[in-house]
Amino acid sequence: MRLGKQTWRFEHDLYIQSTGTCAGPLEGKGPLGDFFDKKYNELHCGEKNWEAAERKLMREAVDICLKNVNKKPEDIDFFMAGDLLNQTVTSNFIARETKIPYLGMFGACSTSMQTLALAAQFVDTGYADSVLVAVSSHNATAERQFRYPTEYGGSKPKTSTFTATGAASALVSQTPSSVKIKEATIGRVIDWGIADANDMGSAMAPAAADTIERHLKDTGRKPTDYDMIVTGDLSSVGSPIVRQLLWERGIDISEMHHDCGLMLYSPEQNVMAGGSGTACSAMVTYGYIVNLLKQKKIQRVFICATGALFNPTVNQQKETIPCVAHGVVLESAGGE
């Protein structure tokens, strides 16, 4: 059922049946380290290059997610995955291995909620019984694709974010579990004229504000109806901006707003403004927030993953950065 213009309310009871998370070294040592299923001590994850390391992270996350509920890839109807690399190559290669019918997706760092929303849609409409979603990102593969070689000594400004290393996967079906997927809000692409790739928090904040405002309008809820409103990776720069943008529009989210980019790392970890990357919001959601919902510590959460939709070529051609944010509402179904 569609609410308003941009929000879906799922008609059936949909659940996150299982999750799998895999973290890189810095993420594993961060404040949420204990919530991840598997942690690697070094960036290569035992592989011979960065791209192979990212594939390993996604492969492990998918394996853990399926193993948790004793499923094999053959049991899954569709696989929706995305990452930051050109042609979403990590996801493509994992799909080659799992042989599950596959839809590759790109929404930059918003891919986590884009895949989850569409997976829920597939299961809700009966076109699938179970859909597996997965996303990954790797600091070194992203650095070299979007910025400079990893060993290059150019200093980064304080507004820049740090691409998270890790992968996260979730299985969506109608099999009851303790985490329900209730609604999803699909975002519009917003561009308020920021061109600085080292300041993505400022660029993405208006997109997050737009999606959160739309979601509340469509559902007729107030921010206080949520225990948490979580943005993807606005970092320490974009987080106060999104709160201010919404406050000026008469929406006060300061009480329950959190940002995955700030949750994933502790302030002592040297990550400039905070974490970013496709895996950032997914690891926090599937690792930490799902856990809170399971334990009934929180009842309802809106996760609004933000993505900067650009590449280095157009950025060097002085184009500004289009941004998008997709949100999903998760609720605790009790149980554990």
């Binding site: 308020w192 004229g193 300041d199 400022s202 208006p206 901006i241 201010q244 403004a273």
Partner: peptide, 16 residues
Amino acid sequence: LNDVKNYKKNIKSYHP
């Protein structure tokens, strides 16, 4: 801050 035209200028105070 919701002034799109001056957004780039107005966010400066939010930068470290």
